[in-house]
């Protein structure tokens, strides 16, 4: 399995009033055509890792890495134009809330068509056909109707499906999903994940799934990175989550209430300073 993405010693630093703050402190991993989960709590640097790969880090931040390459292309050396061409075309990203990532004044169908036409030279009619097919692929029952709707006219789950359709239309090889289902209801969440799962495996894509929900990630991904304070504290196979070694991972697993376990009070996480060291 050749690696699609290689990350070695990735660091993201933000200047603040009190000096430099390192949000990501030396993260290394490689991604093949698989589902990789990145889990951590707020401030763990999981989202900044995804953004750095995508090239969406705010301009005042500094990124450095020994290696940050996608399919042999050095992302740090690439010009803004080359990175733009990669984004959407070969690398796609889904964000938490479709309300903020879809253009509110353009119909969903047009947005998908526009995305396709910026990356491929296709006729309008063909683009429309492919957009409708894509909407069908994300299990939207009446694609013709949804095509003409604006983002505010659809529910959260529908919006997130439209977002996935838009991201997948250009046929990317890698997708970064940052909390793609956290804003959705649990039952809708599973439907959307099911769609994502099917498309990713059908197309043989690499997926980075960023989430705070350790249990959800482990049920969805092949491999899980657990991040704490900007570092990867543990890397393990999703199926072996119950044998996690690091006290942080174990604490995170333990502290969630479970339907079939009666634990009062809940075990809380005792954060040790050496985890962040």
């Amino acid at each position: 399995m050749s690696a699609l993405l290689d990350v070695e010693d990735l660091r993201v630093t933000f200047p603040t009033r009190v000096g430099l703050v390192e949000a990501v402190r030396g993260v290394s991993f490689s991604l093949g055509r698989e589902r990789l989960g990145i889990v951590g709590e707020s401030g763990s640097g999981k989202s900044q890792t995804g953004r750095a790969i995508m090239g969406l880090t705010p301009p005042q931040a500094r990124i450095s890495a020994k290696t940050l390459s996608f399919d042999g292309i050095d992302l740090l050396a690439a010009s803004p134009r080359e990175r733009r061409a990669l984004r959407g075309n070969r690398i796609a990203m889904i964000l938490q809330d479709p309300k903020y990532s879809l253009d509110p004044v353009m119909s969903i169908g047009r947005q998908i068509v526009e995305t396709l036409r910026t990356h491929e030279k296709v006729s309008k009619a063909e683009a429309r056909e492919r957009a409708l097919a894509m909407l069908e692929a994300v299990q939207i029952r009446d694609p013709k109707r949804v095509f003409d709707l604006h983002p505010h006219e659809v529910s959260g789950g529908m919006g997130q499906r439209a977002m996935i359709a838009m991201m997948l239309i250009a046929g990317p090889e890698m997708m970064i999903a940052d909390e793609p289902t956290s804003a959705l209801d649990v039952t809708v969440q599973l439907e959307v994940l099911g769609i994502l799962d099917r498309l990713v495996s059908q197309r043989g894509m690499g997926l980075i799934f960023i989430s705070h929900d350790l249990r959800l990630v482990s049920s969805f991904c092949d491999r899980v990175l657990v991040m704490y304070a900007g570092k990867v504290v543990e890397q393990l196979k999703a199926s072996e989550l119950s044998q996690a070694q690091h006290p942080y991972t174990r604490g995170l697993l333990n502290c969630m209430p479970r339907i079939d376990a009666d634990r009062h009070p809940l075990p809380v996480l005792d954060r040790k300073p050496e985890w962040a060291a």
Partner: peptide, 15 residues
Amino acid sequence: LDASVQAEVLNLLEE
């Protein structure tokens, strides 16, 4: 809230 903080707040509420 984060899961670990959630546990603390739930414990507090029960207490």
